[in-house]
Write a protein that binds this DNA or RNA. Sequence first.
RNA 1: GGGGGCGUGGUGUAGCGGUCAAACAUGCGGCCCUGUCAAGGCCGAGAUCGCGGGUUCGAAUCCCGUCGCUCCCGCCA
Length: 345
Amino acid sequence: MENLAGAQLPLDPFAEALPAIDIRMDWRYLDLRRPFNLLLFKVQTLAEMAMREYWLKTGFVEIHTPKLMGAPSESGAELFEVEYFDRKAYLAQSPQFYKQMAMAAGFDRVFEIGPVFRADPSFTSRHMTEFTGVDMEMSWVDSHEDVMAFMERWLQYIYQRVSDVYGAEIREVMGHDVIVPSLPFPRIPMAEAIEILKGRGYTLPADKKGDIDPAGEREIGAYVQEKYGHEFVFLTDWPISVRPFYHMRHPDNPNLTRSFDLLATGLEITTGAQREHRADVLERQALEKGLGLGPINFYLDFFRYGCPPHGGFGLGLSRLLMVMLGIPNIRETVYLFRGPTRLNP
RNA sequence: GGGGGCGUGGUGUAGCGGUCAAACAUGCGGCCCUGUCAAGGCCGAGAUCGCGGGUUCGAAUCCCGUCGCUCCCGCCA
């Protein structure tokens, strides 16, 4: 390829060796010329289309919730604050509350693909301060199992579509095989997962309180690959100490939630749960967590006038692409990366 | 917020106390060759080794500080 630009390129899209990741981010428009990247965004387009296809076939309605919020939706610790005329507003860190509002409104099943903001100063290969969240919520579930059962079929459909259309090209350009996952995905309760880790000689940090650290998750991913030959695993039934107040608890074990994470090749790509839809129980759980009711009263009100039992999940679009295409750094899977020190271009 | 690593021509790397006014690859410019292009050959431009200070007879190479980047942990998608 001849350079007709009349200047020396800071980044040669067809060079053998790629520049460091921050140089590639600086010159992203040159980096994006690489065939690898064009293919990546073709895959993303198809994947999103497949998501919507499956949702539409199963009775879902698309919603777009506001990204400007008057009050923190969940923890509040990782919120971006912005000026909003004569007061403060916050960038949405999740559509969680608003998609549940749709359940109270009788929408039955909703989804949203949209931006999410997290003011986390996280410097890792899998975090961004702005990313595309893939969220859904469905009514009339009996437990989180119904959500997982839906999700694994949905994911299998997406993988199948991507594999059918781009499998060969992905193998050629990216050197990676898209493996359409078999059903059902393995499910491992958290208590069992911790025992498995112990059995493999993996020592969890002492202060994890029923949680698993990223290295432990990778270890579980390896275990699942060995035992089941599967890239995915649902870690289920997390202790209440590490889950938000709105996760429903097990009636027979109030220390555990009806929740799950989905790990793909050891990477956390999803958190989901059945939600607590009973207003009195929800309020009690919020108080137990030490939350002030003031900021979440509007949310608690959703459930005071009738709301079906429901559950859902949130998935990181770029994290899905990472595992689907075998890309180790999330910055490569997003059009323009946003991180604690990256606001340009 | 805590910890590790890195910072050498456009880019990727080597060098890790003197022989380094810094090497290799690629890219860039020119010429040659070739009935086009590419490949190949030759020549050339391009870094005072992030910045500041220190140690030393002598530092890209050691130490301190600083800035930047990166990865891991925390947290999560």
